[in-house]
Structure formats: C-alpha cells, structure tokens
Amino acid sequence: MTPTSKPLLTTNNISRTFTDGTQALDNVSLNIPEGHITTLLGPSGCGKSTLLRIISGLDDASTGTTNWQNGAPQSGDIGFVFQDATLLPWANVWDNIYLPFRIQNTSRNDANEAIENAINLVDLNGFENHHPNQLSGGMRMRVSIARALATNPSVLLMDEPFGALDEMTRFRLNDDLLRIKEAVNCTVIFVTHSVYEAVYLSDKIAVMSPRPGRIIAEKEIDLGNRTAVLRATSEFAQSCGEISLLLTEGDAP
C-alpha cells in the first residue's frame, strides 16, 4: 500500500448499542484508503457486520459519524455482497443484475452494456438466461458480485461473502476478486473471520476485539503479487501468525 493513498471514508468514534442493550461497537475510528482492500477481521459477533451495515447506511450508529471524502453516496455508489448470494430465485442471471438499474428506472437497453460488462468481469458469459438454482454456489456468488459492481460503485462492501463456500471455490473467488478489483479499480471493505483469507486479500487489516467490537490493531500488508504460491511462503505464514497473535491477545480478558 502506498502511503499517498487518501481515505475514501473515515468512521469517527462509531458506537452502536441495540435496543435490547447489547453493545455491538465501541468507539470505532477507521480510515478506509481509496482503491485498496481493507479487511475487518474479528471473531463471530464482534460487530464487524454491524460496522459494514452502518457504513452502507442500512443501520445507524448510536453515536459517531461516517465521513465520505466525495460527499454522501447515492443509489448505486455502494455495492453490497452478502454472506449468501441473495438473488431473486424467480429471475435469471441477467434480470438479477438488472435489479439495481430497474430500481433506478433505467431502461433495459440503457443498462445492457453495464450488465454485459459485469457478466464478462465475473466470467459468466453464456449464463445470462440461467436461474439461480441452475448454478453452483460459487457461480451464484459471482452473480452477486456482478450485480454489486454493475452500477460502477465507488466502494464494494463484502460481508463474509465466501464463508459458506468450500476451500477450493473460496481460493478461486479470492483470486477472482483481486483480478476484478484491479480491473474496476474500486475500494473494497471485506469482512471475514478467516486470518488466511484476510492476509491473502488485504492491503490493510483492521483487527477487532470480541463484543463490543473495538479496533485493536491496524496492520498493513505488503506481500507483493498474490498467487497460489504466495500461500506457501514463509512471509505469508509469518503475517498470518502475527495477525493470529493480535486476535488472541484481543480475546484475553
């Protein structure tokens, strides 16, 4: 990560307490550098998904603010990928990716180019007329990514998107994500509880404590080219080890 990168957005002292009294987030301040992949890493229930929802506007912070450098995001500025593919089961691949455009009242013709580009990007040419239940879990997730990217968002929010997939599919989609991110040059905020996935994907990792979630460390990762070989290097293992240690320390009472 180059030190010159500006933050796309900053969260300032965000806390979130749910109506039942559970405190999910405690004073989270974080810079999200533009054009990079930032990962929120933490144990289950540490509020990392809540933070993502607050950034997206789906949830509100109890206290604290989110500052966007280029002004508040409009419809389509934020792409969101959920843990499940979250597709309309009755609609085919093309129509699923068309959904954000349809909501913005963009005609099918006007949206077609962006949709075809997104389908190319995730390597799903020829599957436009397939329904979700005719696709594998990995392919469904790629449709979901295509839908999130089709509106050309400035930031892509991903909430444990590959958690439900098998290891091989997950590796493949990790590489796909890196390639796609280079191609469209957008900012990514990625939530995961997998140390290995975080180290492999990220330019920056924000390590979070168990509930209530706090940022206990921010670590920049610079391992060079990500290829399958990288996972076998000692540098990779060392980074994973350091991050694991931070997580364990955060877990200590």
């Binding site: 929802r53 997206s56 419809s75 969101f80 499940d84 959904l99 954000p100 909501i103 913005q104």
Partner: peptide, 11 residues
C-alpha cells in the same frame, strides 16, 4: 437480505 438490497438502492 433482499429487503436490505432493495433499501440500499433506494427502492
């Protein structure tokens, strides 16, 4: 999640 998606795009 689909409800959230619709909300996200301002449906």
């Amino acid at each position: 999640n689909l409800r959230d998606l619709f909300r996200l795009y301002g449906a």
